[in-house]
Design a protein around this nucleic acid. Sequence first.
RNA 1: GGCCCGUUCGUCCAGUGGUUAGGACGCGGCCCUUUCACGGCUGAAACACGGGUUCGAAUCCCGUACGGGUCACCA
Length: 548
Amino acid sequence: MDSAVFTPEAAYTLDQLEAKFPPRDLPAGACVTRFGPSPTGFMHIGGLYTSLVSRRLAHQSGGKFFLRIEDTDKKREVEGTVDLILASLATYGLSPDEGEIADGQEVGAYGPYRQSERKPIYQSCVRWLLDQGHAYPCFATADELQALRDEQTKRKVPPGYYGAWAIWRDKSADDVAAALAQGLPFVIRLRATGGRDERVTLPDTIRGDLEFPANQTDVVLLKADGMPTYHLAHVVDDHFMRTTDVIRGNEWLASYPMHAQMFALFGWAPPRFAHISPIEKQDGGSRRKLSKRHDPEASVGWYMEAGYPLGAVTEYLLNLIDGRFEDWRAANPDLPNTEFQIELERMSRSGALFDLVKLDSVSREVVGTMSARAIYDAALVWASGHDPEFAVRFAADADYSQRIIDIERHGERPRKDIVRWDQLPADIGYFFDDRYAELLGEAKETFAALQPAPAEGLLAAVAEGYDPALERDQWLEWLRDLGLTFGYAPNAKTFKQAPDQYRGHFGDLASVLRVALAARRNTPDLHEMMQVLGKERVVTRLTAAIGW
RNA sequence: GGCCCGUUCGUCCAGUGGUUAGGACGCGGCCCUUUCACGGCUGAAACACGGGUUCGAAUCCCGUACGGGUCACCA
């Protein structure tokens, strides 16, 4: 039987492919890694995690990181996913060196980088396997396969298409020709070579040597539509794309024996493997993988919407990769995190629980090291996409916005209360007059509820006497003195010693000003806030509040 | 069910035969303080269990339990 019938799109011999995709010219020790997502409408945080590991490993060794779109299942494909993947990677600084880099645009000499466009390559390899007797066509129907499984379950033997259960494994050429003549759909299966007690060992970079029973299953290589299964595509692609390190989720551990067998049959040296544990989530008493359905934080889109700065997600993930990152960061507060060398060998073998609280803490630190300008730029990009109304305000006066951001962020102990950009509209909205106007209603309520009630004439006096030229200390002294004339003790201690002699203490006075100026009781340093607002706004707002 | 993987404070990690089992986040307390933060100090908090090996085990071996993965023409 001519194998061409089963692989109509085959176009090369193995030798031709070897010549077409020669070994890469890279320095010794350089790692070539890849990320191979299927475009099913979603970018999982785990994909970002794997990409981070892969890309860092490649780059710190002088190698390459490429993106391969694994779109061999046309049923599950969701349009637009590739753009989403590209945007996600780009947002967190993980753009690939090779592969699709923009809509339909590819770079790199080992393409095409979409598996759906590599059919001739897969079929060429399968044809060789067929010719060698290492693969064969199978015309079993879904019903027949189901019946097989039912029988296996009944007989309590391992389910699967193997050995004597592999009904098409040893069919005669006549049977095959007959099925073909009827136009029956077929798949191509591997003729498994694993012996009954044979074992294979996987030298996993993270986990050390792992041992499994050798593969005995005649796994499907080519589906009825002529597309490869993951197994075939992985082996063929990672060989011809010259991947040195396959970094993938540990759900692939169990299929390693199949892959190993195929590499051996082709006579190819397998790459190194590193199976990483998935990021999990606490769910009641147990833990499970972060799921697309139940956990919004499973999607990279969630982090983009929340406006976590690039570095925050990266550094949090780096922490999961190697706990020593934290120590490194503490010792090197100013170095870019790309300087941190990751080591696969040090990765945890068990799955890490995703901890949003920790992420926030990391983010706080990351934002803490950013300049007001950098925060402004990043937050504006976020706002443009997620809060247009705020974006307009924020962009209207870039200098004003940056001074707002910079409040209490300079000096020895910078304020670290920004975690994600989406908190900004609520946190600093009151600085903008149009937003402040919208907050007036609640401001009045808060003002009316103030205890002790604001002293008559206080607002007018502050508005009257406010001198923005005063340094913080002088200003404080001035305000304390002024407060005293309205019955506010200069500090809490004095007040506590003689509560009946005062209306309240300095903190109460500050609250009055805060509510009038910011429509809330909690604000950053009052002095600095007033400086940024500027005398005009301060006077206007205080004066308007006199009637509250 | 078979096969495989995993198990140190609530969480993330250090620890590779001899440590008062360390750090970070979170939590409690104290301090600083014009509110909220920041910061400083401090406290509570863990080697899944049972057997070995050893002078000595979180570290090595075996078993148990509990989690997880996988057994598709999905990746």
